[in-house]
């Protein structure tokens, strides 16, 4: 082995990479918020009585779950580009991940909806609650409990997926910044190993705070 490690340039790049990590987190959070919104619509749409809505929801979910995330981001960036819709790489990445998140979360939500027995709703109604009240006070809390853990997983997934932005030319997220430094000095291993550590800490930050939140929220 005749390779000398140069960690110093990598540590000099650390502040920039941490700013990149902030962008990564920003994209992940945005894609999750939008993903939850779309997923709710999809979950409702999949059980709609109109065929059009059902077909649209089902094809979104199946397409999101059966093609690679990278392909979906490519479609948003290059594919839509040839239809004359030019998204910059940030928006394309966000759109791709949101599409993916929504597809996976829709299935999670559907499972959550089904897991709460309908008798609960009827019991709440017979206690004198209105339909909306029963849904909000009885069904929702139980559903949230079930979907919380898969949602945390999806959030970690979203963070990991943001690394794909570099392939469509994003240069200010964590991987993008790392790659910028890498092409200047070719200290590939050092830069990317450091990026790996930061990603690991980000993922742990998410799971850790989710656990804390769950502990606060879900005790009787």
């Amino acid at each position: 082995m005749n390779y000398t490690f140069h960690w110093l340039p990598a540590f000099r790049a650390l502040p920039d990479m941490l700013w990149g990590a902030l962008v990564t987190l920003e994209i992940a959070v945005l894609s999750m918020v939008l993903g939850v919104l779309f997923a709710t619509l999809l979950a409702v749409g999949a059980s709609s009585k109109y065929r059009v809505f059902r077909a649209a929801a089902v094809s979104w979910v199946e397409l999101a779950r059966n093609t690679p995330a990278l392909f979906q981001i490519y479609m948003a960036y290059f594919g839509l580009g040839s239809l004359g819709i030019h998204l910059d790489s940030f928006v394309a990445l966000l759109a791709g991940i949101t599409f993916n998140n929504a597809g996976y979360l829709a299935e999670t939500f559907r499972g959550g909806l089904r897991a709460v027995p309908q008798t609960q709703l009827r019991a709440a109604r017979s206690l004198g609650m209105g339909q909306i009240q029963a849904f909000r006070l009885v069904m929702m809390p139980q559903m949230f409990r079930i979907v919380f853990y898969p949602m945390t997983n999806q959030m970690v997934w979203a963070i990991l997926m943001t690394s794909l932005g570099v392939i469509v030319g994003l240069n200010n997220d964590l991987t993008g910044v790392t790659q910028e430094y890498n092409v200047r000095s070719f200290r590939t291993f050092e830069y990317f190993a450091l990026a790996a550590v930061i990603y690991y800490l980000l993922a742990k930050l998410v799971t850790g705070s989710a656990r804390l939140l769950a502990w606060r929220l879900f005790r009787y």
């Binding site: 990991l160 991987t175 590939t188 990317f192 990603y199 993922a203």
Partner: peptide, 14 residues
């Protein structure tokens, strides 16, 4: 499971 696959590939390759 906590590091993007892309980063794992690049690190392993280098």
């Amino acid at each position: 499971r906590s590091i993007p696959l892309l980063i794992q590939l690049v690190v392993a390759n280098s």
